[in-house]
Simulated assay, not measured.
Amino acid sequence: MTDKIALITGASRGLGAAFAEALYDTHHIVAVARTTGALEELDDRIQAKGGAATLAPMDITNADAMAQLCRSIHDRWGKVDLWVHAAVHGAPLTPAGHIDQKDWTKSVAINLDSVGRLIPFLSPLLGADGHAVFFDDPRGGEKFFGSYGATKAAQIALARSWQAESANTGPKVSILTPKGMPTGTRARFFPGEPREALVHPRDEANRLLSELNLSS
């Protein structure tokens, strides 16, 4: 049984789920997502491989719920070795002059505000030796990507500040750029795109994990 803890926010599908499955043999997985059924399916797959997971079906925008989760992690394990943040809201593509305010508010809440809370919550749990991972998607400034591009760019700007601030003290902060994958979010952005040219999340998770070199 591993004593390493990996917290995956946005773990129910796509790259987050793929990371959870890829880490099963080296980490106990704490899987966070809103969709209980998808988390249970992830748990089944991890258990079938001989791993173990703790499911946390909650919304990362709920500050009280996330604070309670972090307190529970502290009380049970005292630490987080790896935090992989894969949660994202991909608002519908639209001209900047036609952004729906509900979509804008949701984008800010999920892509930016939640991260601004989670970093202070998790920094003490990660300590000097932990590792936080974010995923860049450099579409900020591209036409029609206003809500998603702006809030994702702001999230990564915050992560880069944390990365620079913690370079000498820890935790380590990595910002990776995944290749295109056949996820639900990408399908909303590029309907009808040939899926054969895209990389399976499982393969991309393995490639990105090799970049992280967690064993070092």
Rank of each mutant, 00 (worst) to 15 (best):
G192L: 10
G90N: 11
P171D: 02
S166N: 12
D103F: 08
K172M: 01
H98W: 01
A96Y: 03
Y148M: 11
K143P: 00
D129V: 06
W162C: 11
L125V: 08
S147R: 09
N168L: 13
S147H: 01
K143A: 12
F121D: 09
G170L: 08
H98S: 13
K106S: 07
K172C: 02
A154C: 05
P92Q: 14
L158W: 05
A187F: 04
P95Y: 03
P138H: 05
A187C: 02
T183I: 10
S174R: 13
V88Q: 07
G127S: 10
P95D: 12
R139E: 09
P178E: 08
H89C: 04
A157V: 01
F145K: 06
S147T: 11
H131W: 03
G127V: 10
F135D: 07
P138F: 05
N168T: 06
Q155G: 02
I175D: 01
L118R: 04
Q163N: 02
T105A: 14
D136K: 09
R188A: 14
Q155L: 14
G127A: 09
L112Q: 09
I99D: 04
R188I: 11
K143R: 14
A187W: 07
G149C: 07
S107G: 15
H131V: 01
D100H: 13
T177W: 05
G97A: 11
G130H: 09
K106H: 11
K152A: 08
V108H: 04
D136V: 02
F144M: 14
S174G: 05
P194F: 09
F144V: 01
L125R: 14
R139L: 10
G140P: 03
G180P: 11
A86N: 06
F135V: 04
R186L: 15
D129K: 15
E196W: 11
E196R: 15
F135T: 05
G149A: 07
T94N: 12
T151D: 10
A157D: 06
G180S: 12
I110Y: 03
S161I: 10
A86G: 12
P120C: 15
W83Q: 03
K106F: 01
A164W: 03
K152Q: 13
A157R: 13
R139I: 12
S114I: 07
P138V: 01
F144D: 15
A128P: 05
S174A: 12
V108Y: 08
S107K: 08
A96W: 03
T151K: 05
V88N: 08
T177N: 13
G180R: 09
D129N: 14
A86K: 00
F121E: 11
W83K: 05
G130C: 07
L176R: 11
R188P: 00
L118I: 12
D103M: 11
G184I: 01
G140Y: 02
G184Y: 07
L176M: 08
T105S: 13
H89W: 12
I119P: 02
